[in-house]
């Protein structure tokens, strides 16, 4: 009895070591297999950031804590990242300590989980935050276990530093690049139709801008280019080559943007965490820039806003 238990424990330990060694080229991605083996580890905390209301409650990775994109990661009054006090409170309640590894995942191609990773980065937790590669969709496709109980952890006393502005671009930073005062590569990760100005925004979205097109100088690399069919990131070398083809090789600082700043977090994650480039995410994105008065815009298609 005791011997078989020892054997089982050592096999599990070996498998764990093997998986951590061979699992991923990047320190910031984990596989579903790795996740399964570390579900019970008290030093690992999973967070689900999904858009679909009720997705978490109807089944989440066992032990995962819910982060609501509309209330837990943003300030609900002004358009801004969540305040330090509020985020600290959330993390304390989720039992995140000073040595907790944080794994994020979610629906919709991990877009909002990547947005979450960017928010964690602004609060100095970047080195401890990883994405579950393939997100919720891959976990479900593989038929892995889901739990419907809300997780409850003992409160911690984690203290967050002031927000780090170095991974965030503001309108003024973008404008200084457009006006040639600063050098950086702008990457527009929206669809080619949005980039060219044929459409103002994808069908059905509520957040709009009254001008179509893109920021002058921006290069169009739609977010989907860097993922495989199943939603996992392509190998790092491929991603590197793909950006290099577009003239983005990390020699200049990079600014990513999209429409509201969440899809671009996904590309930000790849460039910053997988390729280790100097990248900032412009969370104001096109809904800020395209609505700003008196800024230069490139509108190839020439679509005119008519209020309809």
């Amino acid at each position: 009895m005791a011997i078989s238990r020892i054997i089982r424990a050592s096999v599990a330990a070996l498998a764990l070591v093997a998986s951590t060694v061979t699992a991923f080229a990047s320190d910031f991605l984990v596989s579903a297999e790795w996740a399964q083996k570390n579900l019970a580890d008290p030093k690992v905390r999973f967070f689900e950031v999904s858009v679909d209301n009720g997705a978490y409650e109807r089944g989440h990775i066992p032990g995962a804590v819910k982060l609501s994109w509309h209330t837990d990661l943003v300030d609900t009054q002004s358009r801004d990242i969540i305040s330090r006090e509020a985020f600290e409170k959330k993390l304390r309640e989720a039992g995140v300590g000073d040595d907790t590894t944080i794994i994020l995942y979610g629906d919709n191609n991990n877009w909002f989980a990547a947005w979450g990773a960017w928010v964690f980065e602004t609060y100095g937790l970047g080195q401890r935050v990883k994405l579950l590669d393939g997100g919720r969709k891959l976990w479900e496709t593989q038929g892995l276990p889901l739990d419907t109980n809300a997780a409850d952890y003992a409160d911690t006393v984690i203290k967050l530093p002031e927000r780090d502005a170095s991974v965030r671009a503001r309108l003024i930073d973008v404008l200084s690049v457009v006006e040639g005062k600063n050098q950086a590569k702008l990457i527009d990760i929206r669809s080619p139709d949005e980039y060219e100005g044929k459409i103002f925004a994808p069908e059905g979205v509520k957040e709009l801008s009254v001008r179509a097109g893109h920021i002058p100088g921006a290069i169009n690399v739609p977010w989907g280019k860097i993922v495989r069919e199943d939603g996992t990131f392509k190998p790092v070398d491929e991603i590197k080559a793909l950006y290099a083809e577009k003239g983005i090789d990390g020699s200049l600082p990079i600014i990513t943007y999209c429409r509201i700043g969440e899809r671009s977090s996904h590309s930000w994650f790849a460039l910053k965490k997988l390729l280790n480039y100097d990248v900032r995410n412009y969370d104001g994105s096109w809904t800020e820039y395209g609505n700003a008065v008196g800024v230069p815009v490139v509108n190839v298609a020439g679509t005119v806003w008519t209020g309809k």
Partner: peptide, 18 residues
């Protein structure tokens, strides 16, 4: 039974999803 698993603390303004 479902609510108490999904939302252990039903204090205002918490509401169960959907």
């Amino acid at each position: 039974l479902i609510f108490s698993a999904w939302l252990p603390n039903p204090a205002w303004p918490n509401l169960p999803p959907t």
